[in-house]
């Protein structure tokens, strides 16, 4: 049993964390747009019906309402699928949560292509980019259940808008109970000297797998978990670039505008080294099982391994 890591979807951890948060903070309110069984806010709804607001299928209205609640001292967690929370309600998030610097927390579940069978209409591969570009927005993509729970609590403590992206599929628990998540701080999950894999979300466990494979090939790979995409941990990126000389980014998101871009921006300005980006390469997704899709869109441990080898080669030339 000990060898088989426990798997929990980060959205499930989000739902559980909201209940615990609701128990200790009466100002926490939760909004949903007719997806509470999927975003897992239904547990909060059951426990605190007076503080739960199903806004119906109206994401724009939900974000505006959350802004009004925040302007009156509440800490609203507005929850929907990532595609709708970021895209459907983009202007509302930008104009109110963002421009007003309001204490709105956006719980965006079903991020990325592991949404699976629902297909491209529901697979959010742009949300991190959309949210990252809003001034003052904090963007967090937790890797496992432990980190998700801590991210929810950190978001509630943080003054200002926060976007938390979780996933539909069950993912392995990577962190132990002693882990301390901090907004804006990367975590070194695996030490190494030849290359650094910087990952977020579901790609962390694939990156650890890649590091194992690389180890077998005599390559020492560092794995950095970059849960906070914004503000990105500049110091950790620079340190990784300087110490290992080659970087790979791994995200379940477009290679445009997300983690890969954020890391490349830091590296390009401060310490140019080869960067290889693993992510969805400027195409829409499609229906399929999560595992099938991760292979089709080259988001597997093997893809990360190949990218690491390329980055190391480029560093050597």
């Amino acid at each position: 049993m000990a060898d088989v890591p426990q798997k929990i979807a980060t959205r499930a951890a989000y739902g559980k964390a909201l209940v615990r948060l609701g128990e200790i903070n009466r100002d926490v309110v939760v909004l949903d747009a007719d997806l509470s069984k999927s975003t897992r806010t239904d547990a909060f709804a059951k426990k605190f019906p007076e503080r739960f607001f199903d806004m119906g299928i109206a994401e724009a209205d939900m974000m505006g309402t959350a802004a009004g609640l925040a302007a009156s001292g509440k800490i609203p967690f507005a929850s929907s699928f990532a595609i709708f929370a970021s895209g459907r309600a983009y202007d509302q998030v930008r104009q109110t949560a963002g421009y007003c610097r309001l204490n709105v927390k956006i719980g965006a579940s079903h991020g990325g292509i592991t949404v699976g069978e629902d297909g491209a209409s529901h697979q959010s591969i742009e949300d991190v980019a959309l949210m990252r570009v809003i001034p003052g927005m904090t963007v967090i993509v937790p890797a496992d259940a432990i980190e998700t729970e801590q991210a929810v609590f950190a978001a509630a403590r943080h003054e200002g808008p926060v976007y938390i992206r979780t996933g539909r599929s069950a993912v392995p628990i990577v962190f132990d109970e002693g882990y301390k998540f901090e907004i804006g701080k990367a975590a070194t999950v695996c030490e190494g000297n030849d290359v650094t894999i910087i990952a977020c979300g579901v790609m962390l466990s694939a990156s650890l797998e890649a590091a194992d494979i690389l180890c077998g090939q005599g390559v020492s790979a560092r794995v950095l978990n970059m849960a906070t995409i914004k503000p990105i941990d500049v110091e950790a990126v620079v340190k990784a670039a300087e110490e290992t000389g080659a970087l790979v980014t791994a995200e379940e998101h477009s290679i445009i505008g997300g983690l890969g871009s954020a890391v490349s921006e830091v590296v390009g300005e401060m310490c140019p080294v080869p960067v290889e980006r693993i992510g969805v390469r400027d195409v829409f997704g499609q229906s399929g099982t999560p595992d099938e899709l991760m292979k089709v869109y080259s988001l597997t441990a093997d893809d990360i391994v190949r990218a690491a080898v390329r980055a190391i080669e480029r560093n050597g030339t």
């Binding site: 503080r51 505006g64 925040a70 009156s72």
Partner: peptide
């Protein structure tokens, strides 16, 4: 100024949030 506005159509949602908060408290 209780809510930044300008992008049309959004003020009533925010006002709803304020009215809900007032009732909660």
């Amino acid at each position: 100024v209780e809510m930044s506005t300008g992008s049309l159509g959004q003020g009533l949602s925010a006002a709803n949030g304020m009215a809900i908060a007032a009732k909660l408290d």
